[in-house]
Design a binder for these strands. Structure first.
Lengths: 330, 330
DNA sequence: CTGAAAGCGCTAACAT
DNA sequence: ATGTTAGCGCTTTCAG
């Protein structure tokens, strides 16, 4: 049985309240008593119970970051941004998966108020749940959807514009037959990217293909498979705009396997500017945005404790490498 | 003020214990009462307090995964392995950074028994802390060091052998002057890799360079910088064995910048087989090990609840791509 | 400066 | 099948 504050009090010959004060460095306690208490605590190998403290204080001093999939090249940088500012506030950060729906750790943590605030990315926590639990004592910021409510903030990225820029770039380079490698249709991000794609085509008087290629989640294999079937078609596009870099990379792999040259035969633009980008062959032209900043700003919003939900928009920028052709650099 | 179980009891016109039983689906409760309770709970927007439950039950049903840096291509797969088996036990998973030493979330969580078990990777949680807190009710598994104690388990990878294999591969391919791109000297993993390197050289009657290249943590830039200075030296090696893939990739970047050809002039082997490996140019020959399995097995060990610390050793294998030359494939 | 005591919200005997 | 009640370990008035 682990020692409690009571045991420490007994050993030190003081009251429990004194122990509590001493351990929390309250100025009320004399140096001598404090030392006695610390000695006793060490001797008993005392470790305070976080659960008891949380219960009493009705706070946990921790922020939750809830993501669908904890791996993923995209997330790692936003995690860093979050981590940094959470730590600077002296809070703890837990990152949990939303995988598993109702039974996911993230769900339980939200419901059971294990955290004092949350940053949510990915759609597997429902709007209604978020609105239900958000409150002054539990601010929430969502990263990839528009959701209005008290104590819920949004930080968004100009994905639509980014997609528009990507496709415009392709068009400027002379590509005319540009196909979209899509992520899940239910994804807000994905639809934004599709919209930008469509608008760029229309603004340039190009027809919008009704067919879009789609293979499950935005993973490398998804891009690979989608490209495989695209390549098996009768008429090849001269460019691909992928909903994200991983899919773009997958598509490049599929093409190189059958000898289609990138960018000579087919140009490729990705989205997100993940770390691998510069290393693939050819180095990937893509749309970048600051993932670190996304995390950091979101976290600041959590701490801002504003009742009125704000909505922050972060820019994207085209990052030119060579997967669209050497005219890329101009 | 959020509703408590007491409020629910009052509204439903039953005792608090009845509410508790009902909400926890105890069979003791009649269907009718259960429904009444659920209705009341819903009406009050009742959410149970995890803190109170944890305090009462002295368990949290959550496992902590403590890593130094939550991003990193290496970790993502081990996280997946952990996530999966934690979920299959119906537990929650929190992943926290050990960054910040004593004040890191990970530290606090260990100390304040926020989790029922921990998986620790990276050395910033001290051996003594681990031994201090490990117990029947708090099993710990460490992933990258040997540490014996009750309720502490190790899962290790045959890094030494992997390094041996990597360097032997290089030697078989005719390379004689092989340099080691080292990670932090304090790192257990790194020293294992160095030992394997050294042993392979010795077994083949090759001299062991006293110089090793070293630039901070095992990151891409570290490899880049280390390679830069190496390349500035008078006598170039004909091969590089990097302590991990990221450094290997960084070194390749440094070389391609000044026109040193890989593998013609200098062959490169990495370590860890991270996801990017196949995409860099040239595709990286490396030493692989199953990171998913590492996480999954570690987690099973947490749940095994054995008093005697066990130590599991996972194998590595050479994965041949083309950064060591086309004779690679044989 | 220190001690006594009242809970925080829940669970689980135990009693009915 | 349901109610009463005693804590879990801590913080924090309030008294001294």
């Amino acid at each position: 049985m682990a020692a409690t504050i009571k045991d420490v009090a007994k050993l030190a010959g003081v009251a429990v309240s004194t122990v509590s004060y001493a351990l929390n460095n309250s100025p009320k306690i004399s140096e001598e008593t404090r030392r006695k208490v610390f000695r006793a605590a060490k001797e008993l190998n005392f470790r305070p119970s976080g659960a008891a403290r949380n219960l009493k204080k009705r706070k946990t001093q921790t922020i939750g970051l809830f993501l669908y999939d904890l791996g993923g090249p995209f997330y790692s940088q936003v995690i860093e941004g979050v981590q940094e500012v959470v730590a600077s506030h002296g809070f703890n950060l837990v990152v949990c998966s939303t995988y598993g729906g109702e039974n996911s750790s993230a769900h339980r943590f939200m419901l059971e108020q294990f955290v004092d605030g949350a940053i949510i990315m990915g759609s597997s926590i429902s709007d209604s749940l978020i609105l239900q639990v958000a409150s002054e004592s539990f601010p929430i910021v969502v990263l990839d959807r528009e959701l209005k409510g008290e104590y819920v903030h949004n930080v968004l990225i100009t994905y639509e514009q980014g997609a528009y820029d990507a496709v415009s770039h392709l068009i400027k380079l002379g590509r005319r037959n540009i196909e979209f490698l899509s992520g899940p249709l239910t994804s807000f991000d994905n639809s934004l990217r599709y919209n930008g794609y469509k608008r760029a085509l229309e603004d340039n008087g190009l027809p919008v293909p009704k067919k879009i290629s789609l293979f499950g989640r935005c993973l490398e294999v998804g891009g690979y498979q989608a490209a495989k079937v695209m390549l098996a078609g009768s008429q090849l596009p001269d460019a691909i705009f992928a909903a994200n870099d991983e899919m773009a990379i997958g598509s490049i792999r599929a093409m190189s396997e059958i000898g289609v040259r990138v960018p000579e035969d087919i140009a490729v633009v990705g989205f997100d500017n993940i770390n691998i980008g510069p290393y693939v062959n050819p180095p990937l032209t893509t749309i970048g945005h600051s993932k670190y900043e996304l995390g950091a700003i979101a976290t600041q919003l959590v701490f801002s404790a504003q009742r009125d939900g704000s909505s922050i928009l972060l820019p994207t920028q085209l990052v030119v490498r060579s997967s669209c052709g050497y005219k890329d650099v101009f």
